[in-house]
Design a protein around this nucleic acid. Structure first.
Lengths: 148, 148
DNA sequence: CTACTTGCAAAGCCTTTGCAAACTA
DNA sequence: TAGTTTGCAAAGGCTTTGCAAGTAG
């Protein structure tokens, strides 16, 4: 999913069809989730939304995220005591985390995952249903800065 | 590392050379870590050790684990609000987690990881330093039980 | 003997829950 | 209006920390 507007509409439709109410806070949150590429955590979403909605609470963020997770519209990335959320690409895919600038990048174009999946099925007779793959290291931007 | 006794000695040596004191609780913990293949979490280690050492505390488990992590002798696996520990193979390697029996298996024989690493370096110009790869699904044992 | 380690309890951090008030449809 | 959602505060679960008492070297 690359078009944030389409993604926004998709999330909106899901909530609507589910019979959930579209409050202003929820609309703002799904807007943020569908457009942001930054893989924010709950606190970051809270801080962002608080600018526009000073009375919004962290609990509401968590409750709405739980709702969207249930619907399979948001992917939770479990890092060390710190969950981040991807509402743009809710299907399992690798993430690259820069240990220098702490940005989280999508690694959803990696084709060799097929090979790993195949090997796991073959070698361990293990039937994969989902995965969480995180690679830590230095992103291209930080490499450039460091090399110079 | 396949030989638990060698692994035990290695952990012991690390602690000794570090100048750390080898208390009975620590010895029992590293014995457990070096032999167990089960990837226990802190509570499971605590429950095990409590049988032999009724006065041991969870805090001691955590403090010793932190020590061994610092020394690179224990790998922490970050699951959802639940860290598990691998003292047998402290280097990053894939883990297969059965969603049925909840066992954690090592996937350290998977060769296709090289391909993924290569692809990430090439495609994203990202320099990997470590990774945490978790595959969820059904293990061969549970598949057999289910198929019948 | 000295410095490190221990157990206990308290605190931290992230996340979830209970509930009355507010709000959507 | 009826039922959902909200914010607040409290509680939960896992992990860390402070400190006096205990222990290894």
């Amino acid at each position: 999913m690359n078009n944030p507007e389409l993604r926004y509409q998709a999330l909106l439709t899901t909530l609507h069809e589910r019979g959930s109410r579209l409050t202003s806070h929820r609309l703002a949150l799904i807007r943020l989730l569908s457009t942001s590429e930054g893989h924010p955590n709950a606190m970051q979403l809270y801080e962002s939304l608080r600018l526009q909605f000073p009375t919004i609470s962290l609990a509401t963020i968590y409750k709405t995220l739980a709702l969207l997770k249930d619907e399979g519209e948001v992917l939770e990335i479990d890092l060390h005591n710190d969950s981040h959320y991807d509402g743009n690409k809710p299907y399992p895919h690798p993430h690259l985390i820069c240990t220098q600038c702490h940005k989280i990048f999508d690694g959803d174009e990696i084709t060799a995952i097929q090979k790993i999946n195949q090997e796991i099925e073959d070698r361990y007779n293990f039937q994969i249903s989902r995965h969480q793959l995180v690679f830590y290291g230095m992103c291209w931007e930080c490499r450039e800065k460091t090399d110079r």
